[in-house]
């Protein structure tokens, strides 16, 4: 089986400071990988390098494209990479405001991504937008409201709808449940789990919440100071961590 995403030696420096160093892994279709680590460990830098938001200083990010098979997205032309970002890739930001257009209605936010890939018929776009709002549990009556009138949890769900409407194959998520209260978090996780399973998505989820990765991720990578210190099956890394830092991380979680 060809990996959907094959990452080799990705490195990013900020001057003398290391963002992330020599990260390599393969992600297969349908796999969900979590990346955990304390803040400043380089997990968001890595995610941005993988998603083409930041150019890495070295390494390859090879994506198995629908049309041409495996291609190194780092060396791809900007328009090609942007096209990937609108079709096969999706990026869910921690702050929904970064991923939404706040001045456009909820329906418009979902429809815009459809139009970006060539949808033109208003009836279809509206219909699909309505369908997706329902899937993320946003009431149809809110379709013409702007996201500024939505709660944080609703904004996050709207962002997910906007991202998934074009049927991407790989979703990058940066702290998707950060800043939400726990009841909203549970609902969002439940939703994401269902979507990942039903659509057969692959996903890379950056978070510092170990409960989130236990629930969503098949595999886990633990980062510290820009380096991957441990990786493996999620429950194995959480229940039998091998590296000193992973042990510290797991043992630091407060029991409820």
């Amino acid at each position: 089986m060809t990996p959907l995403l094959s990452v080799q030696g990705v490195t990013k420096r900020y001057g003398a400071h290391i963002g992330c160093a020599d990260v390599s892994f393969d992600l297969y279709p349908g796999e969900v990988m979590g990346i955990v680590g304390e803040s400043g460990s380089g997990k968001s830098t890595l995610l941005n390098c993988l998603a083409g938001h930041q150019p890495p200083d070295g390494g390859q990010v090879v994506f198995d494209t629908r049309a041409d098979g495996p291609r190194d997205t780092v060396r791809m032309s900007e328009p090609e990479r942007r096209m990937l970002g609108r079709t096969d890739w999706a990026f869910v930001h921690q702050h929904a405001r970064d991923g939404l257009r706040m001045g456009v209605s909820a329906g418009g936010n979902v429809g815009e991504r459809l139009m970006a890939v060539g949808a033109r018929y208003y009836g279809d776009i509206r219909h699909k937008a309505t369908d997706w709002l329902a899937r993320v549990e946003i009431d149809e009556s809110r379709i013409d409201d702007r996201p500024t009138t939505f709660s944080g949890g609703m904004q996050q769900r709207l962002q997910i709808a906007r991202n998934l409407v074009t049927g991407p194959r790989l979703v990058f998520m940066d702290e998707p449940t950060g800043g939400l209260d726990v009841s909203v978090q549970a609902r969002l996780l439940d939703l994401l789990r269902g979507l990942v399973r039903d659509m057969g998505l692959s996903a890379i989820i950056v978070t510092h919440d170990l409960a989130v990765v236990r629930l969503l991720a098949d595999r886990l990578m633990v980062m510290k100071s820009g380096h991957v210190v441990e990786s493996g099956l999620t429950d194995q890394v959480l229940d039998d961590p091998q590296h000193a830092y992973s042990q510290l991380l797991v043992s630091s979680v407060l029991q409820v």
Partner: peptide, 9 residues
């Protein structure tokens, strides 16, 4: 048992 399940390494 956990080792056989792959939960412990």
């Amino acid at each position: 048992m956990r080792m056989i399940y792959g939960n412990y390494l």
